[in-house]
């Protein structure tokens, strides 16, 4: 379990990152926290010729409260996001997700942007940004662009980032007072990849629920929304919820894959349980609002 030999560049600036990426293209890999990339290299599943270490690039760091959004730098370590009061205040869904991400040692090094760019289907953060309709800010030699989370993830370990692009930051819409949030996952051990997980946010006014986003993870190739179930919940009075109808809508939306030890059928049951627990939580949160 030793990687093949590689070059190492410790980038001092975003410009340097982009220059090396442009020169080396798909021979290069960006190294953020290294919590997925380095094991992959040690197992020799990946053998990049050059690693560009972005941990010293200040443009990628920091959490900033803007007018409508919370901007989280791609290079923010999980532990920084976990402990940031701004995140707890303006993006409670992310704050709820953070303790579920692996273990303390991994959260100390792993990064917010790294998790998104790795696009592991069982990771928590892709589902969170999907549920929050966040926008991802990207830069490359062809110029900066911004893309919706809905369009960023293409498949397992696949995103729309080009070889010469790097994720700069993520703009998360600030939570509003009528919003309700729910995050939970079913994992065999604390810190494991989940068997099924749900990141969800909705709006509750006078007991009626609207703008429901149900983003599931660990159930398919990539974190995924459940449009039929969202539709089934849209506009209903929470206390009248027909749980069976919503559960059957989830089955229409998603047919989870089997993983090594959990069948798709069990995952579907867990998704339905999580959804019911989410709606129950929304009803409680809405009653307090």
């Amino acid at each position: 379990m030793k990687p093949t030999a590689f070059e190492y560049v410790r980038a001092g600036s975003l410009d340097e990152v982009l220059t090396v990426l442009e020169e080396r293209g798909d021979e290069a890999k960006v190294l953020a926290g290294g919590q997925s990339l380095i094991p992959t290299m040690n197992m020799r599943f990946a053998a990049p010729e050059v690693l560009i270490d972005i941990s010293g690039v200040t443009e990628l760091r920091g959490i900033e409260v803007r007018d409508d959004v919370l901007r989280i730098g791609a290079m923010c370590r999980h532990v920084e996001v976990l402990n940031a009061p701004e995140v707890a205040e303006h993006a409670p869904l992310i704050a709820m997700a953070m303790p579920n991400i692996a273990h303390a040692a991994i959260r100390n090094r792993g990064t917010f942007g790294g998790s998104l760019c790795h696009a592991d289907p069982a990771a928590e953060l892709p589902a969170c940004v999907l549920a929050l309709d966040a926008r991802l800010n990207i830069d490359g030699k062809s110029g900066p662009r911004s893309i919706s989370a809905r369009d960023f993830f293409l498949g397992t370990y696949m995103t729309c980032l080009a070889d010469d692009e790097v994720l700069i930051s993520v703009d998360v819409p600030k939570v509003m007072s009528e919003n309700v949030t729910f995050f939970d996952e079913v994992a065999r051990r604390r810190g494991d990849y989940a068997m099924a997980g749900l990141a969800s946010q909705a709006t509750v006014r006078s007991g009626f629920i609207t703008d429901v986003r149900l983003a599931f993870f660990a159930v398919g190739e990539v974190a995924v929304r459940a449009p039929h179930a969202e539709q089934a919940l849209q506009g209903i009075l929470l206390q009248d919820m027909d749980a069976d109808a919503i559960c059957s809508a989830i089955a229409d939306d998603i047919s989870p894959f089997d993983d090594l030890t959990t069948s798709g059928a069990a995952k579907l049951t867990m998704m339905q349980v999580l959804t019911r627990r989410a709606v129950e939580s929304f009803a409680k949160q809405g009653a307090h609002a």
């Binding site: 079913v186 065999r188 068997m195 030890t261 959990t262 069948s263 059928a265 069990a266 579907l268 049951t269 867990m270």
Partner: peptide
Amino acid sequence: FTPDKILKGLGRA
């Protein structure tokens, strides 16, 4: 005794 086996035993998966 995985969650999968327990749910299957209970007829829930």
